[in-house]
Write a protein that binds this DNA or RNA. Sequence first.
DNA 1: GTGAAAGCGCTAACAC
DNA 2: GTGTTAGCGCTTTCAC
Lengths: 364, 364
Amino acid sequence: MRDGNENDPTDLPRYISAHEVAERAGVSRSAVSRTFTHGASVSPATREKVLRAAEELGYQVNDLARGLLANRSQLVGMIASDPETPFRALQISTLSRLLIENGRVPVLITTDRSETGQASHETLLRYRAQATIVLSGMPSKAFIDLAQRNGQPLIAVGRSEEGPDHVRVNNALAAQTVVQIFAARGMARIGLVTSAVGSPNLVERERAYVDAARNAGLEVVVERAERTDYEGGTLAASLLLSPQRRIEGVFCVNDLMALGVMDYARNMLGLAIPADLSVIGFDDIPQASWGAYRLTTFQQSAERQAREILRILDRRLSDPHAPPIISELDVPLIMRDTVRSPKPGKGKGEQTFTTARTTEGTEK
Amino acid sequence: MRDGNENDPTDLPRYISAHEVAERAGVSRSAVSRTFTHGASVSPATREKVLRAAEELGYQVNDLARGLLANRSQLVGMIASDPETPFRALQISTLSRLLIENGRVPVLITTDRSETGQASHETLLRYRAQATIVLSGMPSKAFIDLAQRNGQPLIAVGRSEEGPDHVRVNNALAAQTVVQIFAARGMARIGLVTSAVGSPNLVERERAYVDAARNAGLEVVVERAERTDYEGGTLAASLLLSPQRRIEGVFCVNDLMALGVMDYARNMLGLAIPADLSVIGFDDIPQASWGAYRLTTFQQSAERQAREILRILDRRLSDPHAPPIISELDVPLIMRDTVRSPKPGKGKGEQTFTTARTTEGTEK
DNA sequence: GTGAAAGCGCTAACAC
DNA sequence: GTGTTAGCGCTTTCAC
């Protein structure tokens, strides 16, 4: 058996090539290729032989070679800062799962908030990734150009500017809803807790909130922490909630900050929520529903967002010249226990108010 | 200018090849290759010409072709279930960052807890990934064999069995430390909250805890939820903390469950922590330090873990035949506010007890 | 230091 | 339906 000997003393394991499978199966190299190529035609007999040989040898198609030929791999890049943060982690998790279910291979590129992400993006170009999804931050112009120039689709999440395809959220409507609720509760002085990050989502929420508050004749105070995280929330709370200010309701641009605000208000200032202070967040991260918080917040569905991203990706791949595809998602308000009731007998339990209409997509 | 015309009416952007760069720079194809190959020798003059041409054309080396030649890509797979969970998200985030810093490309493969992960792993083989890191779950035998057979290194986290390289944690020592602390506080009836998942880490923690408790003459009750998450914690608490049982201290196999236990104990049973009930967790997720919890817990450093993984990876790549590499990490106990004091004047603030020695690695 | 030529593993176009 | 052939973009001998 000098041919298919399994006990080769050069014991370094290595990948098997289609050539070896062909030899073992007694067919041509292309027959092997065809059995593993979707939609190619092989007779059941050959196919069977090939499959057996492949199985025995432990053959795995080389997708590097396939990609080289197609000038495109199945890789899809996800660019994100703070990937360990609850909502971002959920986005990444959900998107990865969906990509895998669709035969794609998710690559996770982490960036600093400060970075342009340029260097990271080049990796995705060099591997001929099918597309790049920017989950956070604002891709720089150079970044967008580079993708454009090489014909790699780029899909952004949570931006509003013109340019690449993106999926967004109706921040303004959410912010207006908050003001409406606070006003209906008879509040006169309300606050906004945000960060200095300045991402489009946060800026939109802030602007719409402040505008709506002014229009409603409410006094509004904006507190800005350095980062959009739990510690930022506690810090903002320490500045915003001085007794003389007598803030009655706070809208936080994300849940993480809201939870920091709540903990600070309760533990450091001895405030009762919602009796002394109402708090509303954004995202509906898992922690928002925990017993210690029961935060009223706007629900951003990572699942729907991921589905939209995939839909955009498919459309974009099938028509590279289509105009920018933009998808807007609902953010229903989840009523929990951090907003004081307007009158007795209301607002307990978990109610869902849909506050924004669906602009795109109705599947499932 | 029929040669380098930039306004090609066939407006589909595409990737540039080294051939085109060579033409524009007026050098040979290999000269281009050499400028982009680390350690190859090119004259400064040629190099300069090539770099300019590449820049102008927006050239990106095709790593698919490179990998085809090398029979190995820079991809590194991370296999994980529940990637949205706080500690797992931190592991993924940290590991991704380190991999990128080291020129690797992290691929995130999500699996169901139930899945063998076999199908996902094949993707990594087909792309000739440099290695697979299993962050959770137990890779099946078939899975391990497949990697082995194709010569792809596989590194596991949190297992104890023989077989692949792995980084582990001294679960037994941590569990024993908990019992020691509870005993020193004069407790007689203690509990363990875990899940039915049965991962090696959890099993080790449980066994060591129960054994230590029995040896110390403490009565110990084990409560097992279906999953190792927040809801599992609340459920376990509801079963474990019946008034007649009078449990005084609970060790939870991870922080997520511990937080669920705390919320249930406080909100549903009206217990004060730590006056009525002491709680100790494991992992030190960000939420553990939040004001609402201030959980005493064992700190698992994602950063050190990731560094160890990279160290193992490098060693393994440089010597494929080395015996299994095993690395054990410390889990210092972070004393916060969920364990009652043995006597007045102790246990406030945040103290760090190092409970396990370092077995491997001292860099940085 | 440079260019020519071979070949990595694969798919697709082409004959039969 | 099958085998033969060419070629994807790259690195790496090999001459010079």
